[in-house]
């Protein structure tokens, strides 16, 4: 049970970073931290005691396996996470080239 709470605290850390930080790079890092905590939660939900990884041995097919459904969901979500993080970094570097700062308050005040 503890590990679910810790996982939730990791999510809250990322959320705190997104709300309070002013630096765009730090907001991107906080968003990926939130993403990682969700992946961890899904992997935790699929875990079972004494289970083996979901690779069936054709000679001995009747074992207990870890739930493969959350793993399949997370597998695609990780790759999507890379693409969206790269897109976020593209937006950030574009903004830096235009305004010369990472500070969202200054960018909001400039209105260029």
């Amino acid at each position: 049970m503890t590990v679910y709470w810790l996982c939730f605290i990791l999510f809250l850390t990322g959320l705190y970073g997104v709300i309070t930080r002013r630096n765009l790079v730090k907001i991107a890092i906080s968003l990926s931290i939130m993403e990682f905590s969700i992946f961890l939660l899904l992997a935790l939900v699929g875990y079972a005691d004494g289970a083996v990884a979901p690779i069936v041995d054709p000679a001995d097919p009747f074992k207990v396996y870890v739930d493969p459904l959350p793993q399949a969901m997370v597998l695609t979500a990780i790759v999507i996470g890379l693409a969206t993080t790269a897109m976020l970094m593209a937006v950030i570097i574009r903004l830096y080239r235009k305004y010369g700062t990472f500070d969202i308050r200054e960018i909001k005040n400039l209105r260029g």
Binding site: A43, L44, A51, V52, Q71, V74, L75
Partner: peptide, 18 residues
């Protein structure tokens, strides 16, 4: 540790590229 080797392979490469 959670018996998800597929995810571990993807995550280690993706984290490096990120």
């Amino acid at each position: 540790l959670l018996k998800a080797p597929d995810l571990a392979i993807v995550q280690i490469v993706v984290e490096t590229i990120t």
